[in-house]
């Protein structure tokens, strides 16, 4: 770990921010954490770009071109990258579209769904292009540690963070490993 405070960055890709909510569920332990760490890019600081960090936490899978870019930036900047939650680990709920054709999905949602008038498939250049499938993050970059769970419990997140900050290999025992 670097001199002084440990820098942590977090991001939600194709996720629901539930893992971030669970992270906040460490409650008053946030004070202990803030004594040791500083936050870089995260929805908590509203910093938009990730600088050099010790630990990166990624919630959500990879469903569009922007997710790929953010994830690669995290990998470049973070010494340790952690997949946080079911979607980052396996693709999770968004990946439940993977057995369907993305074109057919867009057609149905924006064009042929009953009740739509003058529907059109969004095509603004600012919108990131969706990928044909949703991927777990380890299919795009190397991931050092995984915390499964939808979401992982605050205790599981706390255990991994405190293990990493103390320089230990994170270990989750019975009750902390969960897939639901």
């Amino acid at each position: 770990m670097s001199e002084g405070r440990i820098r942590i960055a977090t991001a939600s890709l194709a996720g629901c921010f539930g893992c971030h909510m669970s992270f906040l569920d460490i409650d008053e332990r946030l004070f202990d954490l803030l004594a040791k760490v500083e936050f870089d890019r995260t929805p908590l600081t509203d910093i938009k770009h990730c600088g050099p960090c010790d630990i990166g936490l990624i919630e959500g899978g990879v469903c569009n071109a922007e997710n790929v870019e953010v994830l690669r930036a995290f990998r470049r900047n973070c010494k340790i990258l952690v997949a946080l939650g079911a979607c980052a680990v396996t693709g999770g709920l968004p990946a439940q579209r993977n057995h369907l054709d993305i074109g057919a999905c867009l057609q149905e949602v924006y064009l042929t769904e009953p009740g739509l008038i003058n529907g059109q498939i969004p095509n603004d250049p600012e919108l990131p292009l969706p990928l044909d499938m949703v991927h777990p993050i380890h299919e795009v970059v190397k991931v050092d540690y995984f915390i499964p769970g939808c979401p992982p419990s605050a205790d599981a997140i706390w255990k991994v963070l405190t293990d990493l900050i103390a320089g230990r290999t994170p270990r989750l025992g019975h009750g902390l490993i969960q897939y639901d």
Partner: peptide
């Protein structure tokens, strides 16, 4: 699921088939 927990399976490991 319980086997995954007890054996400490933390990752997907393989690309999932996503069968219909």
């Amino acid at each position: 699921q319980a086997l995954g927990y007890d054996l400490g399976v933390m990752t997907a490991g393989f690309r999932h088939f996503f069968l219909d």
